[in-house]
């Protein structure tokens, strides 16, 4: 801002304060040409209600002056008069930085200690898990649900079935960098409505939901040709691409014929947004360990 405006603010404010102080003290005084205290001001309401020309009550007047004194004190202590930064050297930015620095001093060592731990051990650490749970509640519930069981299109994080892999590096990367799953719309290549319907039944037969009839079975070479690049020839999926295992009973979008048909006709594009900017590396790892621990029960049962 050009210097002129700093002066405009400073002078405008100071002159105005002085003027206010003058106006109040001037008007509170008895003037020679004015009517005396005992006189009536001359208004009359409801026939006989009249008003004395009394001075404003002292406490009222003092409130004005206290306000003005407060204002002057404030302008000396804090930035307000143009470019003058105030005697306390306070600024919104500095206050924020101080708040952040205090928090970093207090919490960073805790995060660092946790982040230095071995992943499996961290995932079983009760305090780290508490921290993970609160991070999860702030950032993840809107998609994966408050119970982490997900919804159609949003994976269940409490099962031991992983689209993008369950190693420390993979889970941390999922959280920090995000994931974009690309399942292309392949129906046009499947030989019309009949071919697509057959493929749906073939996919369902992979996990034994239904028996493959001859139409479905005939799609096997087509599956190898079109789908195996991502889902593998046997349909067991590929965590590098986030391509789900089609032979188990865990479904991202559902096992119904309709859901599978939609995948073939419209494709699927699941997006897990990147959270690294918000979380930072240490907290990404703590959260990853928490997520990993959510499926510990199922892992042990296996």
């Amino acid at each position: 801002m050009p210097a002129f405006w700093h002066w405009f603010i400073a002078i405008g404010t100071v002159v105005f304060i002085i003027w206010c102080a003058w106006l109040i003290s001037w008007s509170a005084k008895q003037g020679p040409q004015n009517v005396a205290d005992e006189d009536l001001v001359g208004h009359k309401w409801d026939g006989d209600l009249e008003e004395w020309n009394n001075p404003a009550p002292k406490w009222w007047l003092y409130l004005y002056f206290i306000t003005i004194i407060w204002g002057v004190g404030y302008l000396i202590a804090y930035p307000g008069l143009g470019a003058f930064e105030g005697a306390l050297d306070w600024s919104q930015h500095n206050q924020y930085e101080a708040e952040m620095a205090a928090a970093a001093e207090r919490y960073d060592p805790i995060y660092e200690d946790f982040a230095a731990m071995e992943f499996e051990e961290l995932s079983r650490h009760p305090e780290a898990n508490q921290l993970g749970a609160s991070l999860y509640a702030s950032y993840c519930t809107t998609c994966h649900g408050s119970d982490a069981r997900g919804a159609a299109g949003y994976p269940n994080l409490t099962d031991d079935d992983w689209l993008w892999g369950d190693s420390e590096a993979q889970i941390v990367s999922t959280i920090a960098n995000g994931r974009v799953a690309v399942m292309p719309a392949l129906a046009p290549a499947l030989g019309g409505d009949e071919g697509t319907a057959n493929m749906v039944r073939y996919v369902r037969s992979l996990s034994g939901i239904e028996e493959a009839d001859s139409g479905a079975a005939s799609m096997q070479p087509m599956f190898v040709a079109l789908c195996s690049a991502c889902h593998m020839a046997d349909g067991t999926g590929n965590p590098m691409l986030g391509a789900p295992n089609l032979t188990d009973d865990v479904w991202l979008y559902g096992s119904s014929s309709d859901a599978i048909m939609t995948a073939l006709v419209h494709g699927r594009n699941g997006v897990m947004p990147a959270h690294g900017d918000l979380l930072g590396t240490n907290r990404s790892k703590i959260l990853a360990a928490y997520v990993y621990n959510l499926s510990a029960a199922e892992r042990q049962a296996d």
Partner: peptide, 29 residues
Amino acid sequence: MRHDTIERSVNLMMVLIILAVSIGGLVEL
């Protein structure tokens, strides 16, 4: 009291009110 002078003149009072109300905006905005 002198405030009587201001209170009896609508025009003077108007000018002073406008001044009092607008200066904050002028200086801040």
